[in-house]
């Protein structure tokens, strides 16, 4: 092949390719108007404060409310049951005078979430308001996030839920990993999460959810005025669930 021919063919191929690429945009373009995703920067950063000094021992109102709101599997069979919010009893054997303590454990909605970093399909991600959430439509069930989470907050659905408690909310499907969503569907409508509401109804008000970036919000005042602790802060995940009296 001569140099001239080579340049001709190469140039022709390049032009045809770019024309195809240009046409492809129109072929695949979505003709849905008015639904363009705007760059949402509300500047919010949701966080949670759990006041363990107020929390009543043995009370599981928040856990039940969470399970009913989000249709979380809780049939009583330990093999399949998953927990978005769970209560564990901790005990310091070196200093027994402290006594036993009940601690609520849930997804910490880290600012640098390890689960989102390991997700191979970007199903787990951090929303613009700081909530770490799973897109069940994308999740392939590889369970990397379950392993990566240092708080054991992630659970895998081995079974889909049979009972449908809250029919306005999707059912949990099997084969996807899940964790607390901080009731994002309720926060988007400016309603408090189910656990917060249940805790208020009990009369305790130990759980507070709010905007950490807003200095006038209840949660920011609590974080500033009280001695708060976070779990495994040394890992650098920057969790947003704060504990009082841990």
């Amino acid at each position: 092949m001569e140099r001239r021919d080579f340049i001709k063919i190469a140039g022709g191929t390049f032009l045809a390719g770019s024309a195809c690429a240009y046409a492809f945009r129109f072929l695949t373009a979505s003709n849905i108007d008015g639904l363009i995703v705007e760059n949402l920067t509300t500047g919010r950063k949701y966080g949670m404060v759990i006041d363990l000094t107020k929390c009543i021992p043995g009370c599981t109102a928040c856990v039940e409310a969470c399970h009913n709101e989000n249709n979380v599997i809780h049939s009583g069979d330990k093999r399949w049951d998953i927990h978005w919010l769970r209560k564990v009893t901790i005990e310091n054997k070196l200093s027994p005078e402290v006594g036993k303590k009940e601690v609520l454990l849930l997804c910490n909605h880290c600012d640098k979430p390890p689960c989102a970093q390991v997700c191979p399909v970007q199903a787990t991600y951090k929303r613009h308001d700081g909530i770490v959430i799973v897109d069940h439509h994308r999740c392939i069930g590889c369970r990397y996030c379950v392993i990566a989470c240092p708080y054991n907050a992630r659970m895998f659905n081995f079974k889909s839920e049979e009972e449908w408690h809250n029919k306005d909310h999707p059912k949990r499907s099997h084969g996807v990993a899940e964790a607390c969503t901080l009731c994002a569907h309720r926060l988007d409508k400016d309603q408090p999460p189910a656990c917060v509401e249940a805790c208020r109804n009990v009369g305790t008000g130990a759980i507070v959810v709010g905007d950490l970036n807003d200095p006038r919000s209840e949660i920011s005042k609590l974080v500033e005025s009280r001695a708060v602790k976070r779990l495994k802060e040394d890992l650098g995940t920057d969790p947003k669930v704060h504990y009082i009296g841990l």
Binding site: I32, Y125, A184
Partner: peptide
């Protein structure tokens, strides 16, 4: 499209 907006952007 709606799904993408709701799930990923909370809109």
């Amino acid at each position: 499209t709606i799904r993408e907006e709701v799930v990923r952007y909370g809109k």
